[in-house]
Design a protein around this nucleic acid. Structure first.
Lengths: 141, 141
DNA sequence: GTAATATTTGCAAGTAACTTGCGTTTATTA
DNA sequence: TAATAAACGCAAGTTACTTGCAAATATTAC
């Protein structure tokens, strides 16, 4: 019997006709076990030294392109990645001192986008939005 | 009689005890005349070749530190800067095709932050938030 | 206004986070 | 199981930005 993650990661790759290599599966499992977006450096550290940097970046980019992952920028000088496949919409909280990042479940009112759209002259539609809250986490206060 | 911008930029620098050099004043005037955040490459282009790249980055960083400017990241691989001094809160719309950026005046309900704070385990307070809407602008549709 | 002091600037060199090219390996398809 | 296509790993390259330090400019003290 396959694990929950194994089945899901397999499905993510299969759905887009992507090769299900050992490495990619390990990467997606690792990402699936995170509670918030993580950096490529974190992934490289966790995956072990056997992993090649180029391969990681290439996999991450491929996954972002296919919508398996979402990529975020919190102003830390590097990107953060998170499983997007089947994940409900949410926002992020970012600690300005230690960099701690937390997912915040979001139930956006459609009004949020609607009123933004009304105010934006040059746009007729938005496909997505991203909302980040910054502050000090309880450990850094 | 000094121009509106001259007076304001002067004030921005003076308020923080920063040297009011020709270059810094020209930079702030240019920034003050923009309707949305701009990149360092844009600023360098507009200011002319006489401007040194290092000097620009150093000035931008100083201004961000003192709250004169706000820095944003829209996933374009480089930062965008905007006057923050005395500017009312707003969000941004970003075109995923041409990169066009637009300010969106925002009247956030206090509830937006309040409900996020309630949902965020590790935070007791947020100092700021940033909300970006992504889509295709009317020119790219 | 002028000298003393502090800040800013410009050049050269350096760094971090990726990206590209290309030959080899691994996975998928026939 | 062979043929084909996708992914990998190494080396080299790029971009956006940073650091060190001496020279220039601005501010402050007289």
């Amino acid at each position: 019997m396959e694990s929950f993650y194994a089945t899901r990661t397999d499905e993510m790759l299969r759905a887009h006709g992507l090769s299900r290599t050992q490495g990619r599966i390990a990467l997606l499992k690792l990402l699936a076990s995170q509670k918030a977006p993580v950096s490529s450096a974190f992934l490289l550290r966790k995956l072990g030294t056997s992993w090649d940097e180029t391969t990681l970046y290439r996999a991450l980019n491929t996954f972002v392109t296919y919508g398996i992952l979402a990529q975020f920028d919190f102003g830390h000088g590097h990107a953060h990645y998170e499983i997007a496949h089947d994940k409900p919409h949410h926002h992020h909280a970012v600690c300005e001192s230690c960099g701690h990042i937390e997912d915040i479940p979001a139930h956006d009112s459609p009004q949020l986008t609607a009123s933004a759209l009304k105010a934006a002259r040059g746009f007729k539609r938005f496909t997505r939005h991203s909302l980040e809250f910054y502050g000090l986490c309880t450990k850094c206060t």
